[in-house]
């Protein structure tokens, strides 16, 4: 199959890109890496009237560590491959590096973007789960709602108002449901900020896929600093990646592993006995040709226990 016709724009300025999206009145879509959008267009599951390609916008290529809080800033033009090659990511964001290495294959990651994966919001994708585990924050931009010229003005050399509107959302508010986020038609996910994990926290990324590089059947991410900080995120077992509050409470009540000798073993035992049931009660997987709902529910519990144990081991 070949895609249906569409109009194509590849502007160089961010304001122009935002205006093109706004003018598209819901029929214009962002083209980032195209690794999810183009397959859908080849099958004509998606037939957008207009594509606005962000590849020429230099301002969206930002990939840096913010001095103020050490957060990793990733612009909409940053590919998954570039993120993995970045020394600051390998050194300072090992959970992100471990997780993104599971996204597809090198040929996909060389075009697919970090923000594109978040905006696409596949329930089995790694990046939305990584965003939750990192307490990431998303910046959404749009052109000003109305473009007005002063009456009688003839100077239209600056048609794009530089006062773009921006809002910032926490990952949990950004992700909505299956293939749905808080990004509205005409808007751009401009940037995502991943704060570093808390000092001394251990982490683990676990997923099971039928073949290397496939979308996961289910996955679990744990970030734990005993008694201080706990994140358990599951993906592939519901409409979107979610934190599991009941398990996080259990981990927060847990004493630091070295507080009392023997506590660490007792804690692990408690996790092994209690977490699978807490997970099973919190997730809502569906079955498909790859795995039944029951299998995914049980797998989620197993992956959660394994991830928490590994994160505890890595915690200092």
């Amino acid at each position: 199959m070949k895609p249906a016709q569409f109009a194509y724009h590849a502007p160089t300025r961010l304001e122009e890109l935002l205006q093109l999206l706004a003018d598209g009145a819901g029929e214009a879509r962002v083209l980032a890496g195209g690794q999810s959008l183009v397959p859908m267009m080849n099958f004509r599951l998606a037939t957008p009237e207009t594509l606005v390609d962000l590849r020429r916008v230099q301002a969206l290529r930002e990939l840096s560590v913010r001095a103020a809080d050490g957060a990793l800033l990733v612009g909409a033009g940053v590919t998954q491959a570039r993120l993995l090659r970045e020394p600051a990511v390998q050194a300072g964001f090992p959970l992100l590096a471990a997780g993104v290495a599971h996204v597809g294959h090198p040929q996909i990651r060389s075009r697919g973007t970090v923000c594109g994966s978040l905006a696409h919001s596949d329930p089995t994708a790694e990046l939305p789960a990584l965003a939750l585990a990192h307490d990431a924050r998303m910046t959404i931009a749009r052109a000003p709602r109305r473009r007005e010229f002063p009456p009688g003005s003839t100077n239209r050399t600056q048609p794009w108002n530089s006062q773009s509107e921006r809002r910032e959302l926490a990952a949990d508010d950004f992700l909505v449901s299956y293939y749905e986020t808080a990004v509205e038609p005409g808007e751009l996910l401009e940037q995502v900020a991943f704060p570093p994990l808390p000092d001394g926290a251990g982490w683990s990324f676990r997923e099971l896929a039928r073949r290397h590089g496939d979308f996961a059947l289910a996955g679990a991410i744990a970030v734990v600093a005993p008694g201080r900080h706990a994140r358990l995120v599951l993906f592939g077992v519901g409409d979107r990646a979610r934190r599991i509050a009941s398990v996080e409470e259990l981990l927060l009540r847990a004493p630091a592993a070295d507080a009392v000798p023997g506590d660490a073993a007792a804690l692990l035992e408690q996790i092994r006995t209690q977490v699978p049931a807490l997970v099973a009660a919190a997730v809502n997987p569906s079955g498909d040709v790859h795995a039944s709902a029951d299998y995914r529910r049980e797998l989620a519990g197993t992956l959660a226990v394994t991830a928490i144990a590994e994160a505890l081991e890595r915690a200092r």
Binding site: Y8, A10, G34, V38, Q107, S110, R111
Partner: peptide
């Protein structure tokens, strides 16, 4: 220089 799927890239890109 990077390996990519030519079926997932438009020629204009």
């Amino acid at each position: 220089g990077e390996p990519q799927r030519s079926c997932l890239v438009f020629a204009v890109q």
